[in-house]
Amino acid sequence: MKKTNLIKAGLLIALGGALVACGGTSSSGTSTGSSVSEFDTSKTIKTYTRDRTSGTRDGFFTGIGLEDAKTDNTPLVDGVVEVSSNGDMMTKVANDEYGIGYISLSTLSENDQIKGLKYDGVVPSEENVLSGDYELTRNFNYIKRATPRDEIRGELVDAYIAFMSTTEGKAIIEQEGGIVEYKSDDPTWESIASEYPIVSDSTVNVTISYGGSTSVKNTAIALANAFKKLCAGTVSFSENFQGSGDAYKFTQGTEKDSTSAMDIAFASRDFKADSEPAAANTTGTLAIDAIVAIVNAKNPYAETTAQALHDIYTGAITSWSEVLD
């Protein structure tokens, strides 16, 4: 008797499972239909974040004043979902009416599933970033040595920096997701190459050390790879990207004469006037990275602020009704 009962129970579970499975596949067509399209403001806000190796995460949490969350999830609301890329973030938020996430502006493609939020009343767009109105941004800056390690390296670094603002250099930066402003008087590399005779010197054989922010790493390496090909001599680059904190330290700060000193370095933030007093004419901005908070297109939420995002991500605000009034 007992055994038949067991078998019956097993059968029930199996049937239940099959039913759920059927529900899983058959309802897919209608799930985006009318039954869930109404936005229920009493629902909980679901937060989505990038994993902590992401530069976008770094920029976002710095921007909204939640620096603690750059390195781990402890300050964040319980149940935050980690996604692996900008594209993944868009897919996940598109699937969740009550989700909120953030992506790099360069990857935002407005569609009928997600929308970018205005930040402090400003629409996220390249024009607004360049004009400075849109403020959820960070600058990608470079810093070179105040006194070059030797003449050849000094001249090459100057040429490398000049290359960044040529039309070729800007195209590379843009490809890597940075926002740059094209001006009508942007030089081509050809037109300014003669100002840097070191580049056409085929006897040059030198290694440039660079490093700094991991967020700028890909852009810097792409620029360096393109720049290398323009040099007649043998120029190689040795990279050591560990974080923005290294940028000043290894070029002009305490480690500038150490074995791992750098000829040029990058930071994904501005240099601090008090602790990082960079010498005049040694720093500059190569690109701007803008981050945009996104929600599902069904969500009526349209405008956000640093404070609102801070409260949402720390869990101080948990329901959409608290931000939608």
């Binding site: 759920v20 529900g23 799930s31 039954s35 679901k46």
Partner: peptide, 15 residues
């Protein structure tokens, strides 16, 4: 999608 739909029957919110 299906799980989300089933959860909404029970009034449960999913990610």
């Amino acid at each position: 999608q299906g799980v989300k739909y089933v959860a909404s029957w029970f009034g449960v919110q999913t990610a």
